[in-house]
Nucleic acid binder design. Structure first.
Lengths: 118, 118
DNA sequence: GAGTACGTGCAACAGTATTGCAAAGTTTTA
DNA sequence: TAAAACTTTGCAATACTGTTGCACGTACTC
């Protein structure tokens, strides 16, 4: 199961939702995939993205990704096709927060139209 | 109703979820508040933030806010108390997207610990 | 005062995430 | 190798948020 889910994520360049992954199988329970993804996340194989569509999406981390703040990158959500792309070469910019705020994590989703939908 | 909801949002410096607003009332239906907030949004009085907690939060726009991409600012979610703050003086940085991607909107949520929770 | 428009509350529903439990499968151990 | 221990899976149920249909009541209009 883990291998299969991993392969699906590997094949895709984009981030997939639980539902989308489920669609790739014929007879696999959502909860099974859910728990598989959770295992992956716990072991830093994948990262999850909340792009605001209501469904969390998942994508493979790079080999050298530690899922630490330094590795954060921007995600792009196409308003037309709904696909979410990992912009792995675009790190989330560091912001100078106001006094007293400490940085732990960030979620930066840019929305617009992707090349395929123009 | 609209006045009451507006006043609640005005009093708070932070963004509130539908549920949190509901808690401020004794006998008001969720749907009523929901529709009130929707009306506000349609008329650009408030903006909604998806901070990844699962609940959309709402905050007043500035007087001169057009809710257009130029007015976007960063939001800060405290991982401890769960409160979401509007960093109205911190605009979302413009990113140079890869060829073919067009920018329409963005959501930038920084997570960490807020001054109150240190 | 009849008709119309608007706001509210109730109830139901949708979509996603999440958990409990038991069955099935796998590994370990004696 | 058989029993015990552990892991994974599928099913069903549930939680939570958001959303809508409908009916009722109030307020406005003519």
């Amino acid at each position: 199961m883990r291998q299969l889910v991993y392969e699906i994520l590997e094949k895709q360049k984009k981030a997939l939702s639980l539902y989308e992954i489920e669609q790739q199988f014929v007879n696999v329970e959502r909860s099974t995939i859910f728990r598989t993804l959770k295992t992956f996340q716990d072991n830093y194989l994948i990262h999850s993205i909340d792009d605001g569509t209501g469904a969390v999406k998942y994508a493979l981390c790079d080999d050298d990704c530690t899922c630490k703040p330094d590795d954060l990158h921007i995600h792009f959500l196409c308003n037309k096709c709904g696909q979410t792309h990992c912009m792995k070469d675009m790190p989330v910019p560091k912001m100078d927060l106001a006094e007293g705020f400490s940085f732990e994590n960030a979620n930066f989703v840019v929305k617009g139209i992707c090349p395929n939908c123009r």
